[in-house]
């Protein structure tokens, strides 16, 4: 049981990652898929942030004490990596939501199966039309 307590945040992050992944797999709704992707991102931030933490130390921002010693501050590198991750996830979310909005405008549904079906029908219709024109 000890290692579960030792790795509490890591396990929470992994479960969150799995929950997000399950959302991606199980939901047909495109917006819910985007939400699942964001939950996965959150899991990655949690994992990175807990990797950098060291018990009993503070965030690496020097106040009045300018004499820096390594024993006082936590690892600053994961903080920078989390920042990168947040920016990328915001960009990806915005782009995917824009694509979803375009799909909704064209097919009037957010269900992925219905969208694929409608796209297939459209393609077949186009093909039939072309064949008719050729004939």
């Amino acid at each position: 049981m000890g290692f579960f307590l030792n790795h509490f945040y890591e396990i929470a992050a992994m479960i969150l990652f799995g929950v997000g992944f399950m959302g991606l797999l199980l939901h047909n709704n495109l917006i819910k898929k985007a939400v699942g992707l964001n939950i996965m991102d959150t899991a990655v931030y949690l994992f990175l942030a807990q990797r950098g933490f060291i018990t009993g130390r503070v965030a690496p921002i020097m106040g009045d004490n300018l004499e820096a010693s390594v024993e006082e501050y936590i690892n600053p590198i994961p903080a920078g990596l989390v920042l990168t991750g947040i920016v990328v996830s915001v960009s990806v979310t915005a782009f995917s939501l824009a694509l979803i909005q375009m799909l909704h405008k064209k097919y009037h549904t957010l269900n992925l199966d219905e969208i694929l079906l409608k796209a297939k029908q459209e393609k077949e219709k186009k093909k039939a039309l072309e064949e008719r024109e050729d004939a």
Partner: peptide, 15 residues
């Protein structure tokens, strides 16, 4: 980064 960050960059916020 922690030891030489202040000297190299001049920022007290090491991140």
């Amino acid at each position: 980064y922690i030891e030489e960050g202040l000297e190299d960059t001049g920022a007290t916020n090491i991140v």
